[in-house]
Write a protein that binds this DNA or RNA. Structure first.
Length: 273
DNA sequence: CGCAGTACCTGTAAGC
DNA sequence: TGCTTACAGGTACTGC
């Protein structure tokens, strides 16, 4: 489920519910999510710690504990649920934090792609995946000049470049399609074919779309089970993603679906050149 | 170094 | 109805 707006929504929702809770026990039912630590090592470090805050960088959540930073990535399908301790454990709930107030935080992930990494206190932003992230939409350092420097010599499709988290952090498959539609840029165009005005547009449009998506609680598609904080409303704002065959809102041309860099990609073949 | 392809894992929907 | 295949909101690794 998670691109920046969905992860931000999860962060905000969790903060309202579990801040200042003390971890009494940790259950790990799929150790691949926490490797290279063992379940025992992972639990031993975390038990007794208090959740003081939750930060976010790109698509990563950083749980600020009393003695450590716990860095979590939801990958494709990771979700958090808060349930009473007595609730049955779902087969896809792979990591469970038991708090002293009889509630639990449960990480649910059908595909087991999610990751948990324990870092020294205050060092969450130095975790492996995080330290290489580029600026997020809206970050003052994400300027037209910055994008130009990163994209103008590349032969890669602009969609792949915008999905590259080391260039821009936070965009994923849905929002990149939406940004390129608004910018009227064809996703397969090599970075080096973009013009001055394209770089400027991509900065402004990515900021606008991400801000609006955060405001609406993110996008919920294909998720019939509503999960904590991620039953968003931005799906109603989508212009191309998932809308194959629907008329383009600008020119009525049917939206088409192609594959770019292995990812399903939606666009208007008339508006996007 | 840059890049394309593959791997990771499971469930669902579409195609035969 | 079954079986097979393609695909899913992401990233890391391999090998050219």
């Amino acid at each position: 489920m998670p691109e920046l707006p969905e992860v931000e929504t999860v962060r905000q929702t969790l903060k309202l519910r579990i801040l200042n809770q003390t971890i009494e026990e940790v259950g790990v039912r799929a150790s691949r999510l926490i490797q290279p630590l063992s379940a025992q090592e992972f639990a031993t470090i975390l038990v007794g710690q208090i959740l003081r805050d939750i930060d976010r960088r790109g698509k990563y959540l950083i749980f600020k504990l009393s003695q450590n930073d716990l860095v979590v990535h939801l990958r494709m399908e990771g979700r958090f649920f808060i349930k009473p301790k007595s609730a049955d454990i779902d087969k896809h709930e792979h990591v469970i934090f038991y708090f002293t107030n009889n509630t639990t935080l449960r990480f649910h992930d059908v595909r087991k792609f999610g990751t948990f990494e324990i870092m020294p206190k205050g060092q969450g932003t130095h975790a492996k995946g995080i330290r290489k992230l580029g600026p997020e939409p809206g970050d003052p350092s994400l300027t037209a000049d910055y994008l130009k420097a990163k994209l103008q010599s590349s032969l890669r499709p602009v969609k792949s470049l915008l999905l590259d988290q080391t260039i821009i952090a936070g965009l994923g498959n849905i929002y990149v399609d939406e940004v390129l539609y608004e910018a009227r840029i064809h996703p397969t165009r090599p970075g080096k074919t973009l013009q001055e005005s394209d770089f400027d547009n991509l900065c402004k449009i990515s900021q606008r779309i991400i801000t609006e998506a955060v405001r609406l609680g993110g996008t919920t598609i294909r998720s019939y089970v509503s999960s904590l904080g991620v039953t968003g409303r931005f799906q109603n704002q989508l212009k191309v993603h998932t809308l194959v065959g629907e008329p383009c809102q600008t020119c009525q041309t049917p939206i088409v679906k192609i594959r770019v860099g292995g990812r399903g990609t939606y666009l208007c073949p008339t508006c996007q050149k």
